[in-house]
Design a protein around this nucleic acid. Structure first.
Length: 196
DNA sequence: CGCTTTTGACCGGCGC
DNA sequence: GCGCCGGTCAAAAGCG
């Protein structure tokens, strides 16, 4: 029924991985510490980038490490959970979400253990603006970022100007276009880190 | 009534 | 060639 499986889409999929480091302090309680560490990394989906087949598959993967346990997945889009699986190495299960927007091939894997959010694909639509969902997706902690574009940008932190508290590493490969595309998407979803 | 979430099963890919 | 793991799909139930 759902024709999400677009053959052509598969090759232009971008993978964003967001790792949210669980922190005890809630930036929500006090606006003093907006401790939101977001690390965005981009890497080819091939973990073993050395072995495997041709290590040149155009499958950019964006890894975003973020700290803060608030609104981990509030990226503004609507996601529908389509699966859950216990993965080895992680005491907690991994959740699989999919963008509810028709035609949007974007998928999101959330690792409740390490709080890793993996974005795969890019939204080919703007924010659906959830009319009725858990409050507003004021992008509490957005989850992903854009490596390529971000290369010139910097993390937008709402509090203080100490945006350098995070060892953010922007590893940009040669996948500029795709990265940028994803970046745009991410920016579209409101890559703005708010304490609450 | 519609949408989302939950659980189980199945399929594919990779490693040994 | 077999086994294991990860990922996805489908159906049913519950909630708003």
């Amino acid at each position: 029924m759902l024709n999400y499986s677009d053959p052509s889409t598969s090759s232009k999929e971008s993978v964003l991985e967001t790792t949210v480091i669980p922190e005890r302090k809630r930036s929500c309680s006090s606006g003093s510490d907006g401790n939101v560490n977001v690390q965005v990394k981009e890497e080819l989906t091939s973990e073993p980038e050395q072995k495997k087949k041709k290590a040149s598959i155009s499958k950019p993967r964006f890894v975003v490490h973020a700290a803060g346990d608030v609104g981990i997945s509030g990226d503004g889009y609507r996601w529908r959970k389509y699966g859950q699986k216990m993965v080895k190495g992680n005491p907690n299960p991994r959740n699989y979400y999919r963008c509810t927007s028709a035609g949007c091939p974007v998928r999101k894997h959330i690792d409740t253990n390490a709080v890793i959010i993996t974005y795969k694909g890019v939204h080919d639509h703007d924010m659906p603006v959830p009319k009725k969902r858990h409050g507003q997706p004021s992008a509490p902690l957005v989850a992903a970022a854009a490596p390529a574009s971000m290369n010139n940008l910097r993390l937008i932190k709402t509090d203080r100007g100490q945006s350098q508290v995070t060892p953010t590493q922007w590893s940009v490969g040669t996948e500029g276009e795709k990265a940028i595309e994803s970046a745009r998407t991410l920016l579209s979803i409101g890559f703005e880190i708010k304490p609450c």
